[in-house]
């Protein structure tokens, strides 16, 4: 009798688990599908334009800002990861360093945004600009890049290092010519994930990158405040554009524009996540082959 109850319970719970998993998958597909279909479905051609009425400029700002932030965070993050994997000796300072990185990675992005606002905007008497936004996003992605680099280095077989050192290479030569290339696929996966997160970041940019954008696509003078490539101009990103559309009815089509921005962001994020997954899958498969 008791056994029967147990078996029934087991079956019931298994059903519950399947239901939750199914519900969850459905939710994701529905969510992503809804955002993308509604965004592109309600879009008119002019909304894609690189003018004030389209989101082209915001799209450009998003990509440019993330690019700038990676230019800053990738070298620093990789070097910090190398420090942790190869140079840091276990001890109090390293322990503290780990806690610091954890702190950095769990900081609310709005707090980082405020810090950026204070240091990059208020203290330097600048107006809101892309570069400050990029710095704020760089701070947010540093811990991710540093920890993936460290993990990537730690997961390499010890024999690479031994082999290289045994031939009279210095630690620096070993790191640059053997370890870093071997760890590169994993690090790149981390960088892609960081980029994906950067695209969607908004809270950290509110008070750093600013909420306006004005690009004159015929001006290529870097010092001009309307030149697309000038990093010291304000640059509203797609995510900020969505935030801005929440209350202010800026125009009759504000809702559709925000829908489209959401859809574009969604596609970018999905594409980058997929890319990271494919890469990771490749790495796993390659490791399997070697074993």
């Amino acid at each position: 009798m008791r056994n029967k109850v147990n078996l029934a319970k087991d079956k019931f719970m298994t059903g519950v688990f399947y239901a939750v998993a199914g519900f969850f998958l459905l939710l994701l597909f529905a969510f992503a599908g809804y955002v993308i279909i509604k965004g592109f479905g309600g879009a008119k051609l002019y909304m894609f334009s690189f003018t004030r009425s389209g989101i082209g400029n915001q799209f450009f700002n998003t990509v440019y800002l993330v690019f700038l932030s990676l230019v800053i965070s990738v070298p620093i993050g990789i070097m910090a990861g190398i420090y942790m994997a190869e140079y840091a000796k276990e001890g109090k300072i390293t322990k503290f360093l780990r806690i610091c990185i954890e702190t950095l990675s769990s900081l609310p992005s709005i707090v980082v945004g405020l810090f950026g606002y204070l240091v990059f905007i208020v203290a330097t008497h600048q107006q809101w600009n892309l570069f400050s936004g990029a710095l704020a996003v760089a701070i947010l992605s540093l811990p991710l890049i540093a920890t993936t680099t460290e993990d990537a280095f730690r997961s390499l077989p010890d024999s690479y290092k031994k082999g290289s050192i045994g031939m009279g290479a210095t630690l620096r030569q070993t790191i640059i010519t053997v370890l870093l290339p071997a760890a590169a696929p994993r690090i790149i996966t981390g960088v892609i994930l960081a980029a994906g997160r950067g695209f969607g970041e908004a809270a950290a940019l509110l008070y750093t990158a600013g909420m306006s954008t004005d690009i004159n696509w015929s001006s290529w003078n870097l010092a001009s405040p309307t030149c697309a490539l000038n990093p010291f101009r304000p640059g509203e990103t797609l995510a900020l554009n969505i935030w801005a559309s929440r209350t202010e009815a800026l125009g009759a089509d504000a809702t559709q524009i925000a829908n489209l921005s959401s859809a574009v962001l969604m596609v970018m994020v999905l594409a980058f996540s997929l890319l990271a997954h494919v890469l990771e899958h490749r790495i796993r498969r390659n490791m399997g082959e070697k074993a």
Binding site: T14, F17, Y18, A21, F24, L25, L28, F31, A32, Y34, V35, L193, G196, R197, F199, G200, E201, A202, A203, A239, L240, I242, W243, S245, R246, A258, N259, S262, L265, M266, V269, L270, F272, S273, L274, H277
Partner: peptide, 28 residues
């Protein structure tokens, strides 16, 4: 329960969810 499907479908799906920007959640 289903480690195979879980690892192949659910896990990547969950990880994609992590990447969706918060403003998009807010907007929806």
């Amino acid at each position: 329960i289903a480690p195979k499907t879980g690892n192949k479908i659910l896990r990547p799906a969950v990880e994609i969810f992590v990447g969706i920007p918060s403003v998009v959640y807010g907007w929806i």
